[in-house]
């Protein structure tokens, strides 16, 4: 029996929608799940890290097996495995989508945790009326408004009777409210917030971008060449000047701005970035292994 094989023939792992069987099994699973969680709280401190290590290793093992095990090719839905190896291969292939769901759901809970943490900080500020608590109130009110109107809009659109909402003419207060908050405010503030950096880059470049050393000079000259190559007009004029000297001489043609920046990108910039990347890659592989085996502190120490 494959818990992960999500096809609809009735099995122990599923039950018809709305049936008593499903309700009972859901309830039992909830009680067992909570029971295990509560049971874990009684585990002696020295065993805790082994629980975390076991879970981490088990989760990682799935994708290691997914990688090293042969995968079924041209498999029909009715095909049955021939032997244990093929059975394992089918099991892994069938399980992967469920593992994806599992990852997305747990990641979803993690996002929820981030928001809970944010709310915790700001509610505490409001409750204690700490300095600038009014801004915390603004944050909480904005969040509540967005949640209320965003979800109400979603619910309205779920209703088959409201298919006309695709057209703005049929909008009500909820739809206008959600649009004003999301499209009018959030999206434009998102754009505004990120565009501010341009001012700081400009100011920092003017104040600090100096040819004080060999390294700084190389960086400055390359940045200038790349920026000039991004300007079509400069590129056009530069190329015109080169062409006026000679159109056939390969050496002279190599001094076109596009040729210089292309050569720099292809010969130095890309390999330099790859050099960094390869260095990072070695570390990444080592980190992956350390996380999987819970040797990394953030991965498994309890």
């Amino acid at each position: 029996m494959n818990l992960f094989l999500q096809v609809d023939p009735k099995s122990f792992w599923n039950a018809p929608h709305g049936s008593t069987e499903l309700t009972v099994k859901l309830f039992a699973a909830f009680i067992i799940g909570i029971g295990i969680a509560v049971g874990l709280t009684f585990i002696p401190a020295q065993l805790r890290k082994w629980v975390v290590r076991f879970v981490t290793f088990g989760a990682g093992l799935f994708y290691v097996l997914f990688w090293i095990f042969p995968r079924p090719i041209s498999r029909a839905p009715t095909d049955a495995p021939r032997g244990a190896i093929e059975g394992m291969s089918f099991w892994i292939a069938d399980s992967q989508p469920v593992i994806m769901t599992l990852t997305n759901v747990i990641a979803g809970f993690m996002i929820g945790l981030g928001i809970y943490s944010l709310l915790r900080v700001h509610f505490s500020k409001i409750a204690k009326q700490q300095r600038d608590w009014a801004f915390s109130a603004v944050l909480v009110i904005s969040m509540l408004l967005m949640v209320t109107l965003g979800y109400a809009d979603f619910l309205q659109r779920q209703d088959p009777a409201n298919f006309g909402l695709a057209d703005q003419k049929n909008w009500g207060l909820v739809n206008y409210g959600k649009d004003l908050l999301f499209d009018g405010l959030l999206q434009n503030m998102d754009a505004g917030m990120f565009s501010i950096v341009a001012f700081y880059i400009m100011s920092a470049a003017y104040r600090a971008f100096r040819a004080r050393s060999i390294e700084a000079t190389i960086l400055l000259v390359t940045a200038l060449i790349v920026m000039l190559s991004l300007m079509g007009v400069v590129e056009f004029m530069w190329s015109g000047a080169i062409d006026s000297i000679s159109k056939d001489n390969g050496l002279i043609q190599s001094f076109k701005l596009s040729a210089i920046s292309g050569w720099l990108k292809g010969t130095i910039q890309t390999p330099a970035i790859r050099g960094i990347d390869f260095g990072v890659g070695i570390g990444l592989l080592a980190m992956g292994l350390r996380l999987w085996l819970s040797l990394e502190k953030t991965g498994g120490e309890a």
């Binding site: 975390v52 981490t56 989760a59 993690m110 996380l291 999987w292 498994g300 120490e301």
Partner: peptide
């Protein structure tokens, strides 16, 4: 650390491929 371990484990298991 259990749900975090699951996420990290799944991530690190993918790293090899």
């Amino acid at each position: 650390r259990i749900p975090i371990g699951i996420i990290l484990g799944l991530y690190s298991g993918q790293q090899f491929s």
